[in-house]
Design a protein around this nucleic acid. Structure first.
Lengths: 201, 201
DNA sequence: AGATGTGTTGACTAGTCGGTCAAATTCCTT
DNA sequence: AAGGAATTTGACCGACTAGTCAACACATCT
């Protein structure tokens, strides 16, 4: 059945993720990605019909990674508040790792890409909206469990509340990227989320 | 003393603000800006030593505009809570206007530019950090007045609280840009900020 | 061994990028 | 009217852009 597949495609996705996450979609060229991945341009277009398609695949790859971690972190076997604590810890750990590796605080890869391409590429905008929906679903389920145990008011609008938490996290990550500084997130994100959740007394 | 200045520079700044705000810095070329402004490229480089310098000047121009409005909105003569209400109203009005004019929800111009260029251009990152400091100063002063009147707890950390509100606004604007939808902001931003402020009882 | 289909190569477009420059134009001052 | 400075012009530059393609390499199947 012909030649066996190498890890060329995966290498391209990983390299592109790093470069685009650190800089931006339009600041990174296909040549840059190929050069850093040690792959010829022809191979690139063997796997991806266009640069935009690669961007979509980097997002899917990121989301698969996130899902793997979040399925554990937001496991219904955990205490709902612990889920948020673990999420914050995961975010901080990931940001520190990326900062060390890429030399800059990078924030949320979806938000950065989405902000840049929102008005430029509809397909990417739609995909990011889907990803946001998935992420807020984790929050919503944790909040629902909190409500069931009476920890938050029974008339809380869970959809609204989960979107608020999501916006807040995205905003703090964006500021961390701009300021190239994780201190505020480290000192504040967990408390601020707990505050936002609105626990009873 | 030679020829009198025209409005060429101003026209370039206004055109660039629109194009960069809607799309992104790297997605818009100097040629695009010149063409839309009806200016020759040579004139562009007569007024700006580089594209990056133009970006800095668009930010300064935006910030001057913001200051003019915020000096009124956050006037110490107003009730502190009204200041936040007016700010939210101003943000929504501005976003609606830009959406109508440019055909897309555009979010915060500083955050969009900052997110894109954070790791690419230090000068712009620093300028945006300065702008954030100015904006949070408005919040902090309003919060201080609230504290003085006993509306919020006396041990609130005002610097932290103002940064939280700022991150939150930035995050919601970013999501609005990505989703190309202002509904959530319209229905939620004001309440969410009041919630974040943490008024007593 | 030879056919078959996957994976790789790198030179090649055609157009765009940010930026330059010498010459021409315009207006103010003297 | 003449000089001089600010402004405008548009052709031009080399580097880079996303994307193409025909030839080639190679593992697996018959």
């Amino acid at each position: 059945m012909g030649r066996a597949p190498n890890n060329t495609k995966q290498k391209l996705i990983e390299t592109a993720t790093e470069l685009i996450w650190r800089d931006s979609y339009n600041a990174v060229s296909v040549d840059d990605i190929c050069k850093k991945a040690g792959v010829q341009k022809g191979s690139f277009y063997h796997y991806f019909p266009s640069k935009a398609h690669l961007a979509l695949e980097t997002m899917d790859s990121c989301m698969r990674d996130t899902k793997e971690h979040y399925d554990d972190i937001f496991s219904p076997t955990r205490d709902p508040l612990e889920r948020f604590k673990l999420m914050v810890a995961y975010i901080i750990e990931q940001q520190k790792e990326i900062q060390k590796e890429l030399g800059h605080v990078c924030g949320c890869p979806f938000a950065t890409l989405g902000s840049e391409l929102a008005a430029q590429d509809d397909a990417i905008g739609i995909r990011i909206t889907e990803i946001c929906a998935k992420k807020t679903a984790y929050y919503q389920s944790a909040l629902r469990d909190l409500m069931a145990s009476g920890a938050i008011s029974a008339d809380t609008d869970l959809e609204v509340k989960s979107k608020e938490i999501f916006s807040f996290v995205v905003g703090q990550l964006l500021m961390a990227r701009i300021n190239n500084d994780l201190d505020f997130i480290e000192n504040n994100l967990e408390n601020a989320i707990f505050n936002l959740i609105g626990l009873k007394t």
